[in-house]
């Protein structure tokens, strides 16, 4: 078998210093999460963990049935890149698994050593914060697992648990908060979005002599286009491409100033925000009375 990337020797703690910036208070308030870690953060996290375990069969099952065969170990790009053993999907899930074993399983309570169960404490939390934010939830490991164990599910559960006690990263929380203010991740306000579209119309006329519209908030259009917001900001050729295709196909379309973002950062945080962001797409489609949604990221 051809191995395109050599498997690195393990280097314990080699990625441990790569820590995300903590979330800012102002963003946490906007996305309905605790501003800071409460004194009883451990209680809050364990309470959330119990809730997650009772809501997601995947999480409970995946924490239960891993046999540690190591099939996933050399499949994660973060392990291949850093050599940090805690970036092996199995070891990443173990960070949550050992706490789960300690507090939620008979096996872990009766014979903790065999199941490597561990108390939730400051050290464990630090590992969670470092390594659960070094997973991109790409699910590559799940393809190779004989039981389909999907580390993304475990990562999402861990982030949801941490978020419930006010532990999150700025990159994610700031972006989510921006969506509720502006409708997109980049923070493009409605007037700016319209202005960008008008600019692209003019630009297209000047450079190519084409008279193609970039409709914004056009009620009753056939298609609502949800592009990545960057397409109207930096990757404008893509935006021009959409317009040309719609024009050539003769389809009436529109973008919405309420929802102009195909990427959902709620996925990296918790279910409530994931849903709240996705709901904006449906809300925009209803209010604009479109027939179809074209959605890409």
């Amino acid at each position: 078998m051809k191995v395109p990337v050599s498997i690195p020797a393990i280097k314990i703690g080699s990625a441990g210093h790569q820590v995300c910036h903590p979330a800012k208070e102002k963003d946490m308030v906007k996305i309905d999460l605790p501003k800071e870690r409460p004194p009883d953060w451990k209680g809050a996290m364990l309470k959330k963990m119990a809730e997650v375990l009772n809501k997601y069969r995947s999480v409970r099952l995946f924490l239960d049935i891993c046999v540690k065969c190591g099939a996933c170990a050399d499949k994660c790009q973060f392990f291949l890149g850093t050599g940090d053993p805690k970036n092996m999907p199995v070891a990443r899930a173990d960070l949550l698994r050992k706490v789960y074993q300690r507090y939620f399983t008979l096996g872990g309570k009766v014979w903790g050593r065999a199941n490597e169960s561990a108390e939730l404490n400051e050290t464990v939390l630090k590992d969670w914060y470092v390594y659960f934010y070094q997973c991109s939830q790409c699910r590559r490991c799940s393809v190779f697992c004989p039981y389909g164990i999907d580390t993304a599910e475990v990562t999402m559960a861990a982030r949801e648990i941490m978020a419930a006690a006010g532990v999150a990263t700025k990159y994610v929380t700031e972006v989510v908060a921006k969506v509720y203010d502006t409708g997109n991740n980049l923070g493009i306000w409605a007037p700016a979005w319209k202005d960008n579209c008008a600019f692209l119309e003019e630009d297209l006329k000047d450079t190519e002599g084409l008279d193609i519209k970039f409709p914004v908030d056009a009620v009753g259009a056939e298609v609502l286009l949800i592009p990545p917001s960057a397409d109207n900001f930096v990757n404008t050729n893509t935006m021009i491409g959409y317009a040309k295709i719609f024009h050539a196909a003769g389809i009436s379309w529109t973008t919405s100033t309420y929802c102009n973002e195909g990427g959902n950062f709620g996925l990296f945080l918790n279910y409530a925000n994931l849903k709240k962001i996705n709901n904006r797409i449906i809300e925009a489609a209803r209010q604009l009375q479109v027939k179809k949604i074209y959605w890409g990221e």
């Binding site: 409708g183 908030d217 849903k275 709240k276 209010q287």
Partner: peptide, 27 residues
């Protein structure tokens, strides 16, 4: 099976109601 509805808080500057008003104003 356990889906719940989500709501906007006062600090969110662009809730669905505001969009409804904007579209109404445009009409």
């Amino acid at each position: 099976p356990w889906d719940f509805s989500v709501s906007y808080n006062v600090q969110n500057l662009f809730p669905p109601e505001k969009y409804r008003e904007t579209l109404k104003g445009m009409r």
